[in-house]
Design a protein around this nucleic acid. Structure first.
Lengths: 230, 230
DNA sequence: GCTTCGATATGGTCTGACCATACTGTGGTC
DNA sequence: GACCACAGTATGGTCAGACCATATCGAAGC
């Protein structure tokens, strides 16, 4: 007989609380904006201490699912939200700091995501005013930081234009977590005219509804911006 | 005069604790496997309560950066880890449940990631034994669940073969969070011979070192597996 | 040398208290 | 009636202190 014993899965109280909240969200069809019971009330209903409820809340907050507001009123308490991008940003930032991810990997991932996003945006014929606005911002920028700010806006707008919210969230997170390196890259490059031409080309391809050209334009743009990684 | 007032940034104690731990990780060059001080000790050193330290730990644990072990000894306490994939999985699962993301978006994202991963794997000439093993597992599968299990292994092995850990983590999370739907899709499809041929084609392309063919094979495979989403 | 069992350090949980915050409702004032 | 000042109150945020379960360590005993 004998057989491979499975280790006893110790489930901690707060994990149980999370699971119940999660089940409740699914069962009641709760949506972003809806309120969860107050911590004290939830603790009493679940028969656990408030500490455990609070730890569960911290986890859900970290995952970008709830947001806690102090005070009283309709907006106070734990409110369901939908911020996958902030959660992703924290995740990437920490793992970059821990060196469990390298910048090369992040940029490479971004390339894959953004090629697809550009292609989708082009074939969907999305609105391009956000892209144009960001482009103008880059022209007016007077420092590398400012330039990167609008550059980020450009690429996020491109992701938004893909119509895929997960893509958009991932793009925001990737950009946020590599902001510091982007400023370095722009500073090292000095002349931003090449990047400007790239952006123009991407915008034109999206406007023209040409997915392949859009994807290629993005790929070449990233190769220009981070030449050391090719 | 006046200008745009910034809202007062209420920083909660546990957020401060996180920031300090994060800074300490970077400053001391801590790596996965290293231990953090015990909760009580950390609370005393930082001049905060243990509850605040614990909430910080919950956040870091959620982000896949630390792992807590009870007991005593060298492995007990909070140990730095590197599990971005479990964190990503939780994130996606919750947001899918909250309907802030749709399945279509997840699959579309997966397509973009996996095309790139396949291309990288092909041009890197990576080891393909994992892919072959998973393929054999699919052939031996006697249920849709079992099939999907090995199918997941195949696609995760492909992502691993790309050599990009972020890609691999994202692929694992995407697959895990859509496991349920994958089983449905296979069941609906009935005949898996088409999928088998697709997998063979992907494997062959990777072995041949043909990035474009690998990417195309992946794209067509996903179109076969989820025809309703094309 | 080996086993046994207490000491101990660790995270996990609970209780109860207090604070800061922000809305709610009441009462007074004009 | 409209407005304002203020006490009331529900909320999350924080703390202190206790107890439990677990896993190792170490000394005592064989």
């Amino acid at each position: 007989m004998v057989a491979d014993w499975q280790p006893v899965r110790r489930t901690r109280t707060f994990e149980d609380v999370i699971a119940q909240i999660e089940r409740r969200i699914a069962a009641d069809g709760l949506k972003a904006g809806d309120r969860l019971p107050a911590e004290r009330s939830l603790a009493e209903q679940l028969g656990v201490s408030r500490s455990s409820v609070r730890e569960a809340m911290r986890v859900l907050e970290t995952l970008g699912v709830v947001s806690s507001q102090v005070g009283r009123g309709p907006d106070a308490g734990a409110v369901l939200t939908s911020r996958p991008d902030t959660a992703l940003t924290d995740l990437l930032r920490l793992h970059l700091g821990l060196a469990s991810l390298e910048l090369r990997e992040v940029i490479d991932t971004r390339l894959m995501i953004e090629r697809g996003a550009a292609a989708r945006a082009a074939s969907a014929g999305s609105d391009t005013t956000g892209l144009a606005t960001a482009l103008a911002g880059m022209d007016a920028a007077r420092s590398a930081e400012e330039f990167v700010e609008h550059d980020t806006a450009f690429h996020c707008a491109l992701a938004d234009a893909s119509g895929n919210r997960l893509i958009a969230a991932i793009m925001r997170s990737l950009r946020d977590s590599m902001r510091r390196y982007a400023v370095e890259a722009v500073t090292r490059l000095g002349d931003t005219s090449v990047l400007r031409a790239d952006h123009e080309r991407i915008l034109a391809a999206v406007r023209a509804g040409d997915p392949d050209e859009a994807a290629n334009a993005v790929a070449e743009h990233l190769a220009h911006a981070y030449p050391s990684l090719s």
